[in-house]
Design a protein around this nucleic acid. Structure first.
Lengths: 247, 247
DNA sequence: GGCACTTTTATGTTCGGACATAAAACTCCT
DNA sequence: AGGAGTTTTATGTCCGAACATAAAAGTGCC
Protein backbone atom coordinates (compact mmCIF):
# COMPACT_ATOMS: atom_id res chain seq x y z
CA UNK A 1 0.00 0.00 0.00
CA UNK A 2 2.29 2.73 -1.22
CA UNK A 3 0.06 5.28 -2.86
CA UNK A 4 -3.29 6.47 -1.67
CA UNK A 5 -6.34 5.81 -3.76
CA UNK A 6 -7.07 9.44 -4.55
CA UNK A 7 -3.44 9.96 -5.57
CA UNK A 8 -3.72 7.08 -8.01
CA UNK A 9 -6.87 8.52 -9.50
CA UNK A 10 -5.26 11.95 -9.78
CA UNK A 11 -2.21 10.48 -11.44
CA UNK A 12 -4.27 8.50 -13.91
CA UNK A 13 -6.36 11.52 -14.83
CA UNK A 14 -3.26 13.65 -15.24
CA UNK A 15 -1.77 11.00 -17.51
CA UNK A 16 -4.98 10.97 -19.53
CA UNK A 17 -4.72 14.70 -20.00
CA UNK A 18 -1.05 14.82 -20.95
CA UNK A 19 -1.37 11.92 -23.39
CA UNK A 20 -4.28 13.58 -25.09
CA UNK A 21 -6.96 11.08 -24.12
CA UNK A 22 -8.69 14.09 -22.57
CA UNK A 23 -7.83 16.92 -24.98
CA UNK A 24 -7.73 20.54 -23.92
CA UNK A 25 -11.19 22.01 -23.97
CA UNK A 26 -12.93 18.67 -23.56
CA UNK A 27 -14.90 17.62 -20.53
CA UNK A 28 -13.77 14.98 -18.08
CA UNK A 29 -16.25 12.23 -17.18
CA UNK A 30 -18.64 13.23 -14.42
CA UNK A 31 -17.82 12.43 -10.82
CA UNK A 32 -20.29 9.56 -10.78
CA UNK A 33 -18.78 8.02 -13.88
CA UNK A 34 -15.31 8.29 -12.41
CA UNK A 35 -16.54 6.72 -9.16
CA UNK A 36 -17.77 3.72 -11.10
CA UNK A 37 -14.67 3.52 -13.29
CA UNK A 38 -12.23 3.54 -10.40
CA UNK A 39 -14.50 1.81 -7.91
CA UNK A 40 -13.99 4.71 -5.52
CA UNK A 41 -16.33 6.91 -3.55
CA UNK A 42 -17.30 10.35 -4.69
CA UNK A 43 -15.26 11.83 -1.87
CA UNK A 44 -12.10 10.18 -3.17
CA UNK A 45 -12.74 11.21 -6.75
CA UNK A 46 -13.38 14.79 -5.69
CA UNK A 47 -10.12 14.89 -3.76
CA UNK A 48 -8.29 13.74 -6.88
CA UNK A 49 -10.00 16.30 -9.07
CA UNK A 50 -9.24 19.03 -6.56
CA UNK A 51 -5.59 18.18 -6.98
CA UNK A 52 -5.81 18.76 -10.73
CA UNK A 53 -7.79 21.91 -10.14
CA UNK A 54 -5.10 23.24 -7.80
CA UNK A 55 -2.54 22.62 -10.50
CA UNK A 56 -4.60 24.57 -12.98
CA UNK A 57 -5.16 21.56 -15.21
CA UNK A 58 -8.95 21.68 -15.05
CA UNK A 59 -11.72 24.07 -14.18
CA UNK A 60 -15.12 23.16 -12.87
CA UNK A 61 -18.55 24.67 -13.22
CA UNK A 62 -21.87 23.49 -11.88
CA UNK A 63 -23.82 21.45 -14.32
CA UNK A 64 -21.33 22.20 -17.09
CA UNK A 65 -18.77 19.71 -15.82
CA UNK A 66 -15.01 19.55 -15.49
CA UNK A 67 -13.12 21.12 -18.36
CA UNK A 68 -9.52 20.41 -19.28
CA UNK A 69 -7.65 23.70 -19.36
CA UNK A 70 -4.01 22.82 -19.82
CA UNK A 71 -1.99 19.78 -20.73
CA UNK A 72 0.82 20.36 -18.25
CA UNK A 73 1.07 21.95 -14.84
CA UNK A 74 1.80 25.61 -15.14
CA UNK A 75 5.51 25.85 -15.65
CA UNK A 76 7.55 28.28 -17.60
CA UNK A 77 8.58 31.54 -16.13
CA UNK A 78 7.93 32.61 -12.65
CA UNK A 79 7.60 36.18 -11.67
CA UNK A 80 8.92 37.09 -8.31
CA UNK A 81 6.93 39.75 -6.57
CA UNK A 82 8.45 39.26 -3.19
CA UNK A 83 10.16 42.54 -2.57
CA UNK A 84 8.54 45.78 -1.62
CA UNK A 85 9.82 47.33 -4.79
CA UNK A 86 7.99 44.74 -6.85
CA UNK A 87 4.80 45.40 -4.97
CA UNK A 88 5.13 49.09 -5.61
CA UNK A 89 5.64 48.33 -9.27
CA UNK A 90 2.64 46.14 -9.40
CA UNK A 91 0.24 47.69 -6.99
CA UNK A 92 1.26 51.31 -7.35
CA UNK A 93 1.66 51.98 -3.67
CA UNK A 94 2.66 55.56 -4.14
CA UNK A 95 1.06 58.15 -1.97
CA UNK A 96 -2.49 58.72 -3.02
CA UNK A 97 -4.54 61.86 -2.78
CA UNK A 98 -8.19 61.18 -3.36
CA UNK A 99 -9.77 63.63 -5.77
CA UNK A 100 -13.34 62.43 -5.92
CA UNK A 101 -15.62 59.47 -5.34
CA UNK A 102 -18.78 58.58 -7.20
CA UNK A 103 -21.14 55.76 -7.99
CA UNK A 104 -21.14 55.06 -11.72
CA UNK A 105 -22.75 52.68 -14.17
CA UNK A 106 -20.51 51.31 -16.93
CA UNK A 107 -21.55 52.55 -20.35
CA UNK A 108 -20.20 50.95 -23.51
CA UNK A 109 -17.00 52.94 -23.49
CA UNK A 110 -16.17 52.35 -19.84
CA UNK A 111 -17.08 48.67 -20.12
CA UNK A 112 -14.64 48.31 -23.00
CA UNK A 113 -11.88 50.04 -21.07
CA UNK A 114 -12.38 47.97 -17.94
CA UNK A 115 -13.30 44.72 -19.62
CA UNK A 116 -16.52 44.34 -17.67
CA UNK A 117 -20.18 43.96 -18.58
CA UNK A 118 -22.02 47.02 -19.77
CA UNK A 119 -24.43 48.23 -17.11
CA UNK A 120 -22.33 47.03 -14.16
CA UNK A 121 -22.49 49.38 -11.21
CA UNK A 122 -19.27 50.48 -9.55
CA UNK A 123 -18.13 52.75 -6.79
CA UNK A 124 -15.27 54.83 -8.19
CA UNK A 125 -12.42 56.35 -6.23
CA UNK A 126 -10.28 58.73 -8.27
CA UNK A 127 -6.91 59.79 -6.98
CA UNK A 128 -3.63 61.35 -7.99
CA UNK A 129 -0.37 59.51 -7.42
CA UNK A 130 2.46 61.60 -6.06
CA UNK A 131 6.03 60.55 -5.57
CA UNK A 132 6.66 62.32 -2.30
CA UNK A 133 8.44 65.46 -3.45
CA UNK A 134 5.87 68.25 -3.19
CA UNK A 135 7.20 70.16 -6.15
CA UNK A 136 7.25 67.44 -8.79
CA UNK A 137 4.58 66.60 -11.31
CA UNK A 138 2.20 63.76 -10.33
CA UNK A 139 3.13 60.25 -11.43
CA UNK A 140 -0.31 59.32 -12.58
CA UNK A 141 -4.08 59.35 -12.17
CA UNK A 142 -5.91 56.30 -10.89
CA UNK A 143 -9.57 55.37 -11.05
CA UNK A 144 -10.33 52.45 -8.76
CA UNK A 145 -13.67 50.73 -9.30
CA UNK A 146 -14.99 48.57 -6.49
CA UNK A 147 -18.21 46.78 -5.70
CA UNK A 148 -20.73 49.44 -4.50
CA UNK A 149 -21.27 47.45 -1.29
CA UNK A 150 -17.78 48.53 -0.29
CA UNK A 151 -18.66 52.20 -0.77
CA UNK A 152 -17.95 52.95 2.88
CA UNK A 153 -14.30 52.30 2.11
CA UNK A 154 -14.16 55.79 0.67
CA UNK A 155 -13.38 57.36 4.02
CA UNK A 156 -10.90 54.67 4.99
CA UNK A 157 -9.08 55.17 1.71
CA UNK A 158 -8.66 58.86 2.40
CA UNK A 159 -7.38 58.11 5.87
CA UNK A 160 -4.72 55.64 4.72
CA UNK A 161 -3.14 57.17 1.64
CA UNK A 162 -0.30 54.67 1.45
CA UNK A 163 -2.20 51.39 1.71
CA UNK A 164 -3.34 49.45 -1.33
CA UNK A 165 -7.09 49.39 -1.70
CA UNK A 166 -6.90 45.66 -2.25
CA UNK A 167 -5.31 45.34 1.17
CA UNK A 168 -8.05 47.46 2.71
CA UNK A 169 -10.73 45.23 1.23
CA UNK A 170 -8.93 42.16 2.49
CA UNK A 171 -8.61 43.54 6.00
CA UNK A 172 -12.16 44.82 6.20
CA UNK A 173 -14.17 42.27 4.27
CA UNK A 174 -11.91 39.23 4.12
CA UNK A 175 -12.05 39.13 0.35
CA UNK A 176 -8.64 38.29 -1.07
CA UNK A 177 -7.42 38.60 -4.59
CA UNK A 178 -6.52 35.18 -5.93
CA UNK A 179 -5.64 36.44 -9.36
CA UNK A 180 -4.70 39.72 -10.93
CA UNK A 181 -5.02 40.49 -14.61
CA UNK A 182 -3.07 43.41 -15.95
CA UNK A 183 -3.29 45.01 -19.36
CA UNK A 184 -0.87 47.73 -20.40
CA UNK A 185 -1.23 49.85 -23.51
CA UNK A 186 -0.46 53.32 -24.79
CA UNK A 187 -3.05 56.04 -25.23
CA UNK A 188 -3.24 59.74 -25.92
CA UNK A 189 -3.73 61.64 -22.68
CA UNK A 190 -7.44 62.51 -22.32
CA UNK A 191 -8.03 66.26 -22.22
CA UNK A 192 -9.88 66.10 -18.89
CA UNK A 193 -6.81 64.69 -17.15
CA UNK A 194 -4.21 66.96 -18.70
CA UNK A 195 -4.39 69.76 -16.16
CA UNK A 196 -4.27 67.55 -13.09
CA UNK A 197 -1.32 65.61 -14.48
CA UNK A 198 0.52 68.74 -15.62
CA UNK A 199 0.89 67.46 -19.17
CA UNK A 200 -0.44 68.39 -22.57
CA UNK A 201 -3.65 66.87 -23.93
CA UNK A 202 -2.99 64.14 -26.51
CA UNK A 203 0.49 63.58 -25.09
CA UNK A 204 1.64 59.93 -25.01
CA UNK A 205 0.63 58.11 -21.85
CA UNK A 206 0.78 54.63 -20.38
CA UNK A 207 -2.50 53.07 -19.31
CA UNK A 208 -2.57 50.15 -16.89
CA UNK A 209 -5.83 48.35 -16.25
CA UNK A 210 -5.84 45.76 -13.49
CA UNK A 211 -8.63 43.39 -12.59
CA UNK A 212 -8.62 41.75 -9.17
CA UNK A 213 -10.38 38.41 -8.99
CA UNK A 214 -11.37 36.45 -5.89
CA UNK A 215 -11.13 32.67 -5.45
CA UNK A 216 -14.27 32.12 -7.46
CA UNK A 217 -13.00 34.10 -10.41
CA UNK A 218 -15.31 37.04 -9.77
CA UNK A 219 -13.91 40.49 -10.41
CA UNK A 220 -14.39 42.66 -7.34
CA UNK A 221 -12.02 45.50 -8.09
CA UNK A 222 -10.71 47.16 -11.22
CA UNK A 223 -8.16 49.92 -11.39
CA UNK A 224 -7.24 52.04 -14.35
CA UNK A 225 -4.11 54.16 -14.09
CA UNK A 226 -2.78 56.72 -16.55
CA UNK A 227 0.89 57.76 -16.48
CA UNK A 228 2.18 60.48 -18.82
CA UNK A 229 5.20 59.26 -20.79
CA UNK A 230 8.44 59.15 -18.85
CA UNK A 231 6.91 59.14 -15.38
CA UNK A 232 6.39 55.45 -14.91
CA UNK A 233 7.72 52.17 -16.28
CA UNK A 234 6.23 48.73 -15.78
CA UNK A 235 9.09 46.43 -14.91
CA UNK A 236 9.17 42.69 -14.63
CA UNK A 237 11.68 39.95 -14.14
CA UNK A 238 10.82 36.45 -15.15
CA UNK A 239 13.00 33.53 -14.25
CA UNK A 240 12.78 30.19 -15.91
CA UNK A 241 11.23 27.73 -13.57
CA UNK A 242 12.21 24.12 -13.47
CA UNK A 243 10.19 20.99 -12.87
CA UNK A 244 10.98 20.88 -9.20
CA UNK A 245 9.48 24.29 -8.71
CA UNK A 246 12.80 25.96 -8.07
CA UNK A 247 14.23 28.77 -10.03
CA UNK B 1 -27.29 31.71 3.60
CA UNK B 2 -24.53 33.72 2.07
CA UNK B 3 -21.33 32.06 3.17
CA UNK B 4 -20.69 28.37 3.45
CA UNK B 5 -20.08 26.84 6.83
CA UNK B 6 -16.50 25.80 6.15
CA UNK B 7 -15.72 29.28 4.86
CA UNK B 8 -17.05 30.78 8.08
CA UNK B 9 -14.91 28.44 10.14
CA UNK B 10 -11.87 29.22 8.00
CA UNK B 11 -12.46 32.93 8.33
CA UNK B 12 -12.91 32.72 12.09
CA UNK B 13 -9.73 30.70 12.48
CA UNK B 14 -7.83 33.11 10.25
CA UNK B 15 -9.10 35.99 12.34
CA UNK B 16 -8.00 34.18 15.48
CA UNK B 17 -4.52 33.84 14.04
CA UNK B 18 -4.14 37.40 12.81
CA UNK B 19 -5.47 38.87 16.06
CA UNK B 20 -3.05 36.79 18.07
CA UNK B 21 -5.56 34.56 19.82
CA UNK B 22 -3.62 31.71 18.23
CA UNK B 23 -0.01 32.96 18.32
CA UNK B 24 2.61 31.78 15.89
CA UNK B 25 4.08 28.51 17.03
CA UNK B 26 1.06 27.53 19.09
CA UNK B 27 -1.25 24.64 18.32
CA UNK B 28 -4.79 25.05 17.11
CA UNK B 29 -7.52 23.07 18.90
CA UNK B 30 -7.90 19.53 17.61
CA UNK B 31 -10.39 18.73 14.89
CA UNK B 32 -12.80 17.19 17.36
CA UNK B 33 -12.69 20.24 19.60
CA UNK B 34 -13.32 22.51 16.64
CA UNK B 35 -16.22 20.30 15.55
CA UNK B 36 -17.83 20.75 18.93
CA UNK B 37 -17.07 24.47 19.09
CA UNK B 38 -18.58 25.25 15.70
CA UNK B 39 -21.19 22.52 15.74
CA UNK B 40 -19.89 21.26 12.44
CA UNK B 41 -18.83 17.87 11.15
CA UNK B 42 -15.24 16.81 10.98
CA UNK B 43 -15.37 16.97 7.20
CA UNK B 44 -16.35 20.63 7.32
CA UNK B 45 -13.68 21.52 9.85
CA UNK B 46 -11.04 19.72 7.79
CA UNK B 47 -12.04 21.63 4.68
CA UNK B 48 -11.61 24.88 6.58
CA UNK B 49 -8.23 23.85 7.93
CA UNK B 50 -7.11 22.76 4.48
CA UNK B 51 -7.80 26.29 3.31
CA UNK B 52 -5.46 27.70 5.95
CA UNK B 53 -2.91 25.03 5.12
CA UNK B 54 -3.01 25.94 1.43
CA UNK B 55 -2.40 29.53 2.41
CA UNK B 56 0.61 28.52 4.44
CA UNK B 57 -0.91 29.72 7.70
CA UNK B 58 -0.69 26.37 9.46
CA UNK B 59 1.12 23.07 9.15
CA UNK B 60 -0.15 19.73 10.29
CA UNK B 61 1.46 16.61 11.59
CA UNK B 62 -0.07 13.40 12.75
CA UNK B 63 -0.60 13.28 16.45
CA UNK B 64 1.31 16.51 16.94
CA UNK B 65 -1.58 18.68 15.84
CA UNK B 66 -2.04 21.82 13.78
CA UNK B 67 0.65 24.43 14.26
CA UNK B 68 0.31 28.12 13.44
CA UNK B 69 3.14 29.04 11.08
CA UNK B 70 2.41 32.58 9.94
CA UNK B 71 0.10 35.41 10.84
CA UNK B 72 -0.54 36.54 7.28
CA UNK B 73 -0.91 34.62 4.06
CA UNK B 74 2.30 34.28 2.13
CA UNK B 75 1.74 36.59 -0.73
CA UNK B 76 3.47 36.28 -4.00
CA UNK B 77 1.99 35.95 -7.41
CA UNK B 78 2.87 33.55 -10.09
CA UNK B 79 2.64 34.41 -13.71
CA UNK B 80 1.39 31.70 -15.94
CA UNK B 81 3.00 31.60 -19.32
CA UNK B 82 1.76 28.18 -20.24
CA UNK B 83 -0.40 28.78 -23.26
CA UNK B 84 0.74 29.70 -26.71
CA UNK B 85 -1.18 32.92 -26.42
CA UNK B 86 0.88 33.92 -23.42
CA UNK B 87 4.07 33.22 -25.30
CA UNK B 88 2.89 35.35 -28.19
CA UNK B 89 2.15 38.09 -25.73
CA UNK B 90 5.50 37.85 -24.18
CA UNK B 91 7.77 36.98 -27.05
CA UNK B 92 5.91 38.73 -29.84
CA UNK B 93 5.71 35.76 -32.15
CA UNK B 94 3.92 37.63 -34.88
CA UNK B 95 5.17 37.33 -38.40
CA UNK B 96 8.35 39.28 -38.89
CA UNK B 97 9.67 40.95 -42.00
CA UNK B 98 13.29 41.91 -41.61
CA UNK B 99 13.97 45.47 -42.77
CA UNK B 100 17.68 45.81 -42.16
CA UNK B 101 20.60 44.42 -40.23
CA UNK B 102 23.65 46.27 -39.01
CA UNK B 103 26.46 46.17 -36.51
CA UNK B 104 26.21 49.05 -34.07
CA UNK B 105 27.97 50.45 -31.04
CA UNK B 106 25.80 51.71 -28.21
CA UNK B 107 26.09 55.46 -27.71
CA UNK B 108 24.78 57.18 -24.60
CA UNK B 109 21.22 57.37 -25.87
CA UNK B 110 20.99 53.75 -27.03
CA UNK B 111 22.70 52.53 -23.85
CA UNK B 112 20.05 54.32 -21.79
CA UNK B 113 17.23 52.83 -23.84
CA UNK B 114 18.58 49.29 -23.67
CA UNK B 115 20.00 49.47 -20.18
CA UNK B 116 23.45 48.32 -21.26
CA UNK B 117 26.96 49.75 -21.03
CA UNK B 118 27.90 52.56 -23.35
CA UNK B 119 30.26 51.33 -26.02
CA UNK B 120 28.87 47.77 -26.16
CA UNK B 121 28.88 46.34 -29.65
CA UNK B 122 25.72 44.71 -30.95
CA UNK B 123 24.40 43.11 -34.11
CA UNK B 124 21.01 44.65 -34.77
CA UNK B 125 18.14 43.05 -36.65
CA UNK B 126 15.29 45.46 -37.40
CA UNK B 127 11.95 44.11 -38.47
CA UNK B 128 8.30 44.99 -38.83
CA UNK B 129 5.65 42.93 -37.07
CA UNK B 130 2.60 42.11 -39.14
CA UNK B 131 -0.54 40.44 -37.96
CA UNK B 132 -1.17 38.29 -41.01
CA UNK B 133 -3.71 40.34 -42.92
CA UNK B 134 -1.79 41.95 -45.79
CA UNK B 135 -3.89 45.09 -45.82
CA UNK B 136 -3.68 46.13 -42.18
CA UNK B 137 -1.20 48.47 -40.56
CA UNK B 138 1.85 46.86 -38.94
CA UNK B 139 1.63 45.97 -35.26
CA UNK B 140 5.02 47.28 -34.38
CA UNK B 141 8.71 47.77 -35.11
CA UNK B 142 11.30 45.65 -33.38
CA UNK B 143 15.03 46.14 -33.01
CA UNK B 144 16.70 42.99 -31.76
CA UNK B 145 20.26 43.38 -30.49
CA UNK B 146 22.35 40.24 -30.20
CA UNK B 147 25.96 39.43 -29.53
CA UNK B 148 27.95 40.15 -32.75
CA UNK B 149 29.27 36.58 -32.72
CA UNK B 150 25.79 35.51 -33.65
CA UNK B 151 25.75 37.78 -36.69
CA UNK B 152 25.27 34.84 -39.05
CA UNK B 153 21.79 34.46 -37.56
CA UNK B 154 20.69 37.27 -39.83
CA UNK B 155 19.99 34.93 -42.71
CA UNK B 156 18.29 32.34 -40.53
CA UNK B 157 16.03 34.99 -39.09
CA UNK B 158 14.89 36.01 -42.55
CA UNK B 159 14.22 32.41 -43.43
CA UNK B 160 12.07 31.69 -40.37
CA UNK B 161 9.82 34.70 -39.95
CA UNK B 162 7.63 33.10 -37.31
CA UNK B 163 10.23 31.77 -34.87
CA UNK B 164 11.41 33.73 -31.88
CA UNK B 165 15.01 34.84 -32.16
CA UNK B 166 15.60 33.55 -28.65
CA UNK B 167 14.54 30.13 -29.84
CA UNK B 168 16.89 30.34 -32.81
CA UNK B 169 19.82 31.16 -30.56
CA UNK B 170 18.94 28.29 -28.29
CA UNK B 171 18.70 25.86 -31.18
CA UNK B 172 21.87 27.00 -32.88
CA UNK B 173 24.16 27.91 -30.04
CA UNK B 174 22.61 26.16 -27.06
CA UNK B 175 22.42 29.37 -25.12
CA UNK B 176 19.23 29.46 -23.15
CA UNK B 177 17.52 32.36 -21.48
CA UNK B 178 17.33 31.80 -17.74
CA UNK B 179 15.81 35.17 -17.01
CA UNK B 180 13.92 37.81 -18.94
CA UNK B 181 13.62 41.41 -17.86
CA UNK B 182 10.89 43.48 -19.42
CA UNK B 183 10.30 47.20 -19.15
CA UNK B 184 7.22 48.82 -20.63
CA UNK B 185 6.69 52.54 -20.97
CA UNK B 186 4.99 55.07 -23.21
CA UNK B 187 6.83 57.28 -25.68
CA UNK B 188 6.11 59.60 -28.55
CA UNK B 189 6.57 57.81 -31.84
CA UNK B 190 10.02 58.70 -33.29
CA UNK B 191 9.76 60.47 -36.63
CA UNK B 192 11.99 57.94 -38.40
CA UNK B 193 9.56 55.11 -37.62
CA UNK B 194 6.32 56.92 -38.44
CA UNK B 195 6.18 56.07 -42.13
CA UNK B 196 6.94 52.38 -41.74
CA UNK B 197 4.35 52.05 -38.97
CA UNK B 198 1.74 54.08 -40.84
CA UNK B 199 1.24 56.47 -37.94
CA UNK B 200 1.89 60.12 -37.24
CA UNK B 201 5.17 61.26 -35.69
CA UNK B 202 4.82 62.09 -31.98
CA UNK B 203 1.75 59.86 -31.75
CA UNK B 204 1.46 57.84 -28.51
CA UNK B 205 3.25 54.51 -28.64
CA UNK B 206 4.09 51.62 -26.37
CA UNK B 207 7.74 50.68 -26.01
CA UNK B 208 8.75 47.28 -24.69
CA UNK B 209 12.40 46.59 -23.92
CA UNK B 210 13.35 43.02 -23.06
CA UNK B 211 16.70 41.74 -21.86
CA UNK B 212 17.46 38.04 -22.12
CA UNK B 213 19.97 36.73 -19.62
CA UNK B 214 21.71 33.37 -19.59
CA UNK B 215 22.39 31.18 -16.54
CA UNK B 216 25.35 33.31 -15.55
CA UNK B 217 23.34 36.50 -15.59
CA UNK B 218 24.93 37.82 -18.76
CA UNK B 219 22.70 39.66 -21.21
CA UNK B 220 23.02 38.08 -24.65
CA UNK B 221 19.98 39.56 -26.37
CA UNK B 222 17.98 42.75 -26.05
CA UNK B 223 14.86 43.62 -27.98
CA UNK B 224 13.13 46.97 -28.22
CA UNK B 225 9.66 47.03 -29.72
CA UNK B 226 7.50 50.03 -30.52
CA UNK B 227 3.75 49.67 -30.96
CA UNK B 228 1.60 52.65 -31.96
CA UNK B 229 -1.30 53.12 -29.52
CA UNK B 230 -4.16 50.69 -29.95
CA UNK B 231 -2.23 48.04 -31.86
CA UNK B 232 -0.84 46.03 -29.02
CA UNK B 233 -1.54 45.40 -25.35
CA UNK B 234 0.73 43.74 -22.85
CA UNK B 235 -1.42 41.28 -20.94
CA UNK B 236 -0.59 39.33 -17.85
CA UNK B 237 -2.32 37.06 -15.42
CA UNK B 238 -0.87 36.59 -12.00
CA UNK B 239 -2.16 33.98 -9.62
CA UNK B 240 -1.51 33.99 -5.95
CA UNK B 241 1.00 31.35 -5.04
CA UNK B 242 1.12 29.47 -1.79
CA UNK B 243 3.89 27.79 0.12
CA UNK B 244 3.16 24.36 -1.21
CA UNK B 245 3.44 25.58 -4.76
CA UNK B 246 -0.24 25.28 -5.36
CA UNK B 247 -2.52 28.04 -6.48
C1' DG C 1 -39.87 32.33 -33.53
C1' DG C 2 -38.97 34.01 -28.97
C1' DC C 3 -39.72 34.65 -24.22
C1' DA C 4 -40.92 32.68 -19.54
C1' DC C 5 -41.11 28.79 -16.95
C1' DT C 6 -39.93 24.05 -15.40
C1' DT C 7 -36.98 20.11 -15.38
C1' DT C 8 -32.74 17.92 -15.36
C1' DT C 9 -28.08 17.35 -14.07
C1' DA C 10 -23.30 17.89 -12.44
C1' DT C 11 -20.99 20.06 -9.01
C1' DG C 12 -20.95 22.01 -4.06
C1' DT C 13 -21.85 21.45 0.86
C1' DT C 14 -22.63 18.85 4.90
C1' DC C 15 -23.36 15.12 7.77
C1' DG C 16 -22.11 10.55 10.14
C1' DG C 17 -19.22 6.64 10.59
C1' DA C 18 -15.10 3.51 10.17
C1' DC C 19 -10.43 2.22 9.98
C1' DA C 20 -5.27 3.44 9.03
C1' DT C 21 -1.13 5.67 10.40
C1' DA C 22 2.44 8.27 12.49
C1' DA C 23 4.34 10.12 16.37
C1' DA C 24 4.23 11.54 20.97
C1' DA C 25 3.61 9.68 25.57
C1' DC C 26 3.82 6.20 28.58
C1' DT C 27 5.29 1.67 30.71
C1' DC C 28 8.41 -1.60 31.91
C1' DC C 29 12.47 -4.16 32.27
C1' DT C 30 17.41 -4.34 32.84
C1' DA D 1 18.93 6.10 33.78
C1' DG D 2 18.03 4.43 29.41
C1' DG D 3 16.48 1.65 25.74
C1' DA D 4 12.56 -1.40 24.02
C1' DG D 5 8.07 -2.06 23.55
C1' DT D 6 3.09 -0.60 24.15
C1' DT D 7 -0.61 2.66 24.38
C1' DT D 8 -2.76 6.82 23.22
C1' DT D 9 -4.12 10.32 20.18
C1' DA D 10 -4.63 13.62 16.39
C1' DT D 11 -4.45 13.56 11.71
C1' DG D 12 -5.16 10.95 7.15
C1' DT D 13 -7.94 8.06 4.13
C1' DC D 14 -12.24 6.25 2.69
C1' DC D 15 -17.02 5.09 2.47
C1' DG D 16 -22.23 6.09 2.08
C1' DA D 17 -25.91 9.30 1.99
C1' DA D 18 -28.57 13.51 1.61
C1' DC D 19 -29.75 18.03 0.21
C1' DA D 20 -28.40 22.70 -2.05
C1' DT D 21 -27.33 25.24 -6.07
C1' DA D 22 -26.27 26.90 -10.57
C1' DA D 23 -26.68 26.40 -15.21
C1' DA D 24 -27.88 23.95 -19.26
C1' DA D 25 -31.66 21.81 -21.54
C1' DG D 26 -36.24 21.14 -22.36
C1' DT D 27 -41.28 22.79 -22.38
C1' DG D 28 -45.02 25.48 -23.46
C1' DC D 29 -47.44 29.60 -24.24
C1' DC D 30 -48.15 33.87 -26.95
Amino acid sequence: MSETLWAQVARDLTAGITTGRFPIGSLLPTELELCEHYGASRHTVRTAIRQLQDQGLVSRKKKAGTRVEAAAPTSGYRQSLASLEDLIQFGVAHIRTVQETAEVTADASLAAELGCEEGTRWFRISSLRLDGRPGGAPIGWTDVYIDPTYADLGDVVRASPDVLITTLIEQRYGRRSAEIRQDVDAIALPAVRAAALQAKPEAPALRIVRQYLDEKGKVFEISSTIHPAGRFTVSQRLRRMYENGHA
